[in-house]
Design a protein around this nucleic acid. Sequence first.
DNA 1: CGTTACGTTGAAAGGTTTCAACACCAGTGG
DNA 2: CCACTGGTGTTGAAACCTTTCAACGTAACG
Lengths: 266, 266
Amino acid sequence: MSNKLSCERCGLENCLFRESVTVREFESARAIHGLTGLDRGGRIWQSGNGCRHLWIVVDGLAALSTALADGRRQITGLISSGDVICPVSDKEGTESWAEALSPVQVCEIDLRGMINGGDHSDAIWGSLFRATHQQLERSNINLVMLGRFDGMERICLFLAEMARRIGIPGPGGHRVHLPMSREDIADYLGLNAETVSRLLTRVRKMNLATFISPTDFVVHDIDALAQRTPTSGGKPPPTQRSVLRRFSFSSPFKMDRMEAGRSSDK
Amino acid sequence: MSNKLSCERCGLENCLFRESVTVREFESARAIHGLTGLDRGGRIWQSGNGCRHLWIVVDGLAALSTALADGRRQITGLISSGDVICPVSDKEGTESWAEALSPVQVCEIDLRGMINGGDHSDAIWGSLFRATHQQLERSNINLVMLGRFDGMERICLFLAEMARRIGIPGPGGHRVHLPMSREDIADYLGLNAETVSRLLTRVRKMNLATFISPTDFVVHDIDALAQRTPTSGGKPPPTQRSVLRRFSFSSPFKMDRMEAGRSSDK
DNA sequence: CGTTACGTTGAAAGGTTTCAACACCAGTGG
DNA sequence: CCACTGGTGTTGAAACCTTTCAACGTAACG
């Protein structure tokens, strides 16, 4: 964590592969393809099954999108600098791709040589595994948000996360330039554009954020936003049924383990 | 795909690691811990960050759960025979674990030795990568479901998937024993228990499934269910705004690639 | 034979979506 | 210079679906 070495190839400081893998290893695996630029709207996709390429985002913001045949769309993830685009294959009746929301620089990694043979270091594989796993953890949060948060909670989580990830700290708070339309935001949050607009109006009136333009705003206090989100402790339960202890949190000290017992068996 | 070799250790036929990895490789990596049984309600979790263990489910059904401090719960995935439990770390204000819905047999894999050093084969790492990636694709589908499906579509997708995954084909259709309460189903589908009950009543009245008991039912025609789902082609759009071509599907022939162009720039 | 957990159903409340109208902006062309 | 046009964002009102709250039935259990 202390070594601030940036990737020799793309200069990205927080590259997931930075710590354990040198560019030379990728090169010997004929895996690294180097930097490519994508304009706003540029897409990355894969055909068929199995993940054969990864793209590390060096700069810019991209959306992982899935569209249904009837036109509905869900943005399943937002990818910013340092994240990895790990494409998923299209299921029946759906199409998935990654789309640049702002000009994006990506570093392409070809996994085919690694998966098919050769003998590559544990370090490079470990980095790949961590990259995929990080995406999995992001998806997990979004699943909880879409399944269990109401509109206001979703917007607050979204603004807080954007402020943290792409906000620029300044005297008045974190300034964010968000290259997304209301419809993009809606497709990320599982709402529709009008609802997003109304929620943002409420956010503005509550002074949780100040809007300079539809795509530029300032978050004065990220914690104030996060506290309107159930993932932050110390929040009173919303208009939900009183199921406060439906699921008791387990002991504070935990290790990786299994427990065979059962609280209430059928 | 042709070799039906089962894993030497657990006997699982469709083990993700079966094709390319022998037990001996895992053993030399000191990674495989062998079979463990979990009663209904038994849990698996991890503390701290980073994924250090995987569990391959040999038999039974398990739920990946995340709970919020106020008691809301989201089941972020269902794991059946052949799937891999890849734990996610707890975020602030949340707790995540895997829970056996029926008696479950798991095969534990310790990744620590592999991540930290040694020199293991590409095959074993490739299998790990595929396992995580498969989970990612499942999450992607669920994100679209939670963000964009209405209640009826969710139930139909759920029943079709359960029939496919754990249904037993017979003369009258696929018979499913589902060890989940209405509340479990609700927490998986982002609904509440009463709504699930009402939707299942509608499913019953439409003859899409016949219920023998609250946890046992028969799906006569999986395709009939799937057609009430927007992931299946040839379905008329629901009560949605007419955005039929908001996002045009791209050319039928595709390769892994990027396209730099832009349909409508800001 | 109470107790408890679970499932079903009804009625009212609540939040989101739909539909519509309007404002704003940038680009275009008369 | 200005009307026109398409894309985008905002706001209101009604419709719609899900949730909440409540009542009731059933099965398992001691």
